[in-house]
Amino acid sequence: MPIIEIKHLKKYYQVHKKEPGLAGSIKSLFNRKYEDVKAVDNISFEIEEGELVGFIGPNGAGKTTTLKCLSGLLYPTSGGVSVLGFNPWDRKYPFLKQISLVMGQKNQLWWDLPAIESFILNREIYEIPKEQYEKTLDELTTLLEVKDVLKIQVRKLSLGQRMKCELIAALLHSPKVLFLDEPTIGLDVVMQKKMRDFIKEYNRRNKSTILLTSHYMGDVKELCKRIIIIDKGKILFDGLLSEIVEKYADHKVLSVVFSKEIDAKKLEEIGEVREYNYPKAVIYVKREVSSVASAELLQHFPVADLTLEEVPIDQIIREVFTGKDVA
């Protein structure tokens, strides 16, 4: 049985539009125009136990809304949601005790107090046995290297330290299902890497199910086998990360460095020239003729260096969003 099951989920928001300025405010007082925003528009998917799924899409695609429906914060407009066999909206304690939602932009710790106080509160709220708490806390603080900042007020921590503490607070009760919303937002490259390594390790060790949203492709590329791409409330792709390359990228990328100036027009015969800036050129060629094209290039042009690569995954996804044919 899948751990997470979403069937035809819809979440529409009603927002009222206001014209700018005071006149607009007064006008909207008497005549409010409401508009439906389709944050999530009929999506369905299932996630099995222990999966680590990447949920990607541009801003406003509906990722966070979906996560909020899954964690019981939002009441769906229609459709069915089931997590661990519960209807999240009921917010039953046994359900809440098995999940966690971490939002990169939101602070869940008590701002004015040291992080350890929030941890203790969570220990009590989630009724975590003392030994288990000590053990988990020790593990997590060691793994994330924050042992020495637990007694410092949260608001005095750096963003990286705070995010780590947020994560610890969310993991103390060893949730079976973890929703991570932009867990690496605002972190520097080194911290991003650490965070990723941690999430990967956590998933492997605890067999917990993780659904992660991010708009850093790096997060997804490194962590998830399976990805769900969502845009404007609709699912564009749901499958293995490797499949997306096959499905959307029927081209490969030829990067060439020439030793002598050449006639750019002639290059067009090889494939689609994406970039030509002597001495470098980037040419897209059909997957099935890629080797022929490289041979031709070597034969007819003064080539100093040549590489044949897959289209970068970031670009494929970017182009999935813009609705363009990829390469």
Binding site: L96, K97, K106, I125
Partner: peptide, 12 residues
């Protein structure tokens, strides 16, 4: 501010 979220997520 949306801070209520943190309370709603907890068994409390």
């Amino acid at each position: 501010s949306g801070e209520l979220t943190k309370l709603l997520l907890q068994p409390l």
